[in-house]
Amino acid sequence: MEFAKAAIASGQTVAVHCDSKYAIDCVTKWAFGWKARDWTRKGGEIMNLALIQRAHALYLEIANDVQVLHVRGHAGIEGNELADRMSMLAVAEQQTALQPYTGALAPEALLAMRSG
């Protein structure tokens, strides 16, 4: 959502593709109810609450200018497969902060990594 907001601010059209229907629903649907109930839910704790709160706040800022779309994971969609490998690379390098990838862009090498 942070990258989407920056892209929108620079005049770009933005669509966020995500393979987690759960993540999409947390930010674009369920968070409205959780927020109305002071960030609680009937079924217990909201996992990753701070992350959801931040993503939802950003979503609210750009909701009229962004599409959030579900794509099937591990279905051979190149962008989704690259995102999967990039997340694995971040875990392997113990990167905890959100940051753009600064390494050499070699999609073939990234796609050759073990999938998650």
Rank of each mutant, 00 (worst) to 15 (best):
V16T: 11
S20W: 03
D38C: 08
R85V: 01
H56C: 03
G116H: 07
K21Y: 00
Q95V: 10
M88H: 12
V27H: 13
G79H: 07
L69S: 10
W34A: 07
R41Q: 14
D84L: 03
M88Q: 14
G43F: 00
Q99T: 10
R37A: 09
M47W: 04
V14M: 07
T28G: 10
H56V: 02
F32I: 14
V71H: 09
K21N: 08
K21R: 14
G116P: 06
H56F: 13
E78C: 05
D84A: 07
E108I: 02
A6V: 01
V71K: 14
G44M: 07
V71L: 08
R114T: 02
I46V: 04
A15R: 15
G103T: 07
L49C: 00
R37Q: 13
R114I: 00
A15Y: 00
R85M: 01
Q99W: 03
N80H: 12
M113Q: 12
T102D: 03
Y22T: 14
V66R: 10
A63L: 04
A109H: 01
L58E: 06
N80Y: 08
I24R: 13
K42E: 10
K42L: 00
E81H: 10
S87A: 15
G44E: 06
G43K: 14
S20G: 10
F3L: 12
V68P: 03
A104C: 05
A104Q: 13
S115L: 00
W30K: 15
N80E: 01
Q99L: 10
A4G: 05
G76T: 04
Y22A: 08
N48V: 01
G73K: 12
S10G: 03
L60S: 09
L69Q: 15
A63G: 03
A9Y: 00
R54S: 08
E2P: 02
E45D: 06
A7S: 14
A104K: 14
I62Y: 08
F3A: 13
H17L: 13
Y22R: 15
L98T: 05
L89F: 06
R72A: 04
A63P: 07
D19V: 05
L51I: 02
V14L: 08
L58C: 05
E2N: 15
L82R: 12
S87K: 03
L98Y: 11
E2L: 12
T28W: 05
C18S: 14
A106Q: 11
G33K: 15
C18L: 10
A90R: 14
V91K: 15
W30E: 11
T13G: 06
I24V: 07
Q95G: 00
R41D: 00
D65A: 09
Q67M: 10
E108R: 15
V68S: 09
A90M: 11
A109C: 01
A104D: 06
R37C: 02
A90L: 06
W39P: 13
G73L: 02
A75Y: 01
Y59S: 07
L98M: 07
